[in-house]
């Protein structure tokens, strides 16, 4: 039940400069042992978007990212980043953070960044010192540049991994849970950094569990559930796809429930001291009038717009256990 709202049809054939930053068509990964991690994923990330890639644990976000970056071969389907025929051709213009930081423990933070810069054939060795210093400064690690990675704290490691994505000019940043392990200041910094980078025209593809955060920085959202994309669109589109509810505070909750039913509202949930129902297109003032006509003691009345979390839970289910 994919509710694809923002479909871009002939995206695969688009030119490198103008086309979408990421396109996948029928992208599927079945791991040895039969586990389907990603199931016929059709994803389109427009250039310049900050795309929030959401989904419960084990829903296939990291596996998708690995396929986009060419680390994992898809079982079937195809993907393309920055319009390139193969990931390697585009990767030099991509900064990637995949499933947490990984560095050489016996090297300093700066030496680690130099190491990865040396692996990029198009990086200019003459500017590496400046670029490393700027990237470290960008994530607030300038003071710890000479410290061995082994001695870094969890958050410092995460920051170093983000610094590594900023070593060159990037057209696309792929960030798999970038704020994992960061303190509130760090989280805010990363959010600002992503906004900054996006303001410079770079497309950002960010997977996260922190819905409040995604809500604050993303322009587009895709929601994964057990390997499938269950929703894709702009934040506004996604919010409007789920209906607001009306909440009535009243001592006569069963009477109120009957009155709301009579009014034609659905999905009514009575609780001690209150009743709530799906408002749909109904006007709240009409509902209020109807309740008052019935002589129900209305103590409070509220229209509740769903948070992204509500949308998310609605799309991916209430279940807490991971599906495997």
């Amino acid at each position: 039940m994919t509710t694809t709202i923002d479909a871009a049809g002939d995206a695969m054939t688009a030119s490198p400069a103008g086309g979408p930053a990421i396109v996948t068509r029928g992208l599927t990964k079945r791991f040895r042992g039969g586990q389907i991690a990603v199931d016929h994923l059709d994803l389109t990330v427009p250039r310049g978007a900050v795309f929030g890639f959401l989904g419960p644990n084990g829903s296939g976000k990291t596996t998708t990212i690995r396929m986009l970056l060419g680390l994992v071969t898809p079982t079937s389907g195809s993907s393309s980043i920055l319009g390139a025929a193969s990931p390697v051709q585009a990767l030099t213009r991509v900064g990637a953070l995949v499933e947490g930081p990984a560095f050489y423990p016996y090297l300093s933070g700066a030496a680690n960044l130099r190491r990865f810069d040396a692996a990029d054939p198009s990086a200019d060795p003459r500017t590496v010192g400046r670029r490393v210093a700027e990237a470290l400064d960008r994530v607030g690690l300038a003071a710890a540049a000479k410290k061995r990675y082994r001695a870094y704290s969890l958050g410092m490691r995460q920051r170093l991994a983000i610094a590594a994505t900023l070593l060159g000019p990037r057209e696309l940043l792929v960030l798999d849970e970038p704020t994992n392990g960061l303190d509130p200041q760090g989280t805010r910094e990363v959010r600002n950094l992503i906004k900054d980078v996006a303001a410079g025209g770079t497309t950002v593809f960010v997977s996260s569990h922190l819905l409040a955060e995604v809500e604050q920085m993303c322009t587009h959202i895709g929601v994964m559930s057990t390997g499938r994309l269950v929703a894709e669109g702009t934040l506004t589109e996604l919010r409007s796809a789920s209906v607001p509810r009306i909440r009535v505070e009243t001592p006569d909750s069963s009477l109120a429930a009957a009155a709301l039913t009579a009014f034609g509202l659905t999905n009514i949930i009575p609780a001690p001291g209150e009743v709530s129902a799906e408002l749909g297109d109904a006007l709240p003032e009409r509902v209020t009038a109807a309740l008052v006509r019935e002589g129900i003691a209305v103590r409070g009345l509220q229209v509740v717009h769903p948070t992204l979390e509500d949308v998310f839970v609605h799309l991916t289910g209430e279940g807490f256990d991971v599906e495997a």
């Binding site: 310049g48 920055l82 700027e134 900023l166 000019p169 990037r170 303001a199 410079g200 025209g201 770079t202």
Partner: peptide, 26 residues
């Protein structure tokens, strides 16, 4: 060309600067 500009991304330069750097690189 593109790398000489260093951290143009993180420096928050305009959108067209990255488009320019995309051209020759591509």
């Amino acid at each position: 060309g593109p790398l000489g500009e260093g951290l143009s991304v993180s420096a928050g330069v305009q959108a067209d600067s990255s488009a320019v750097s995309a051209g020759p690189r591509a």
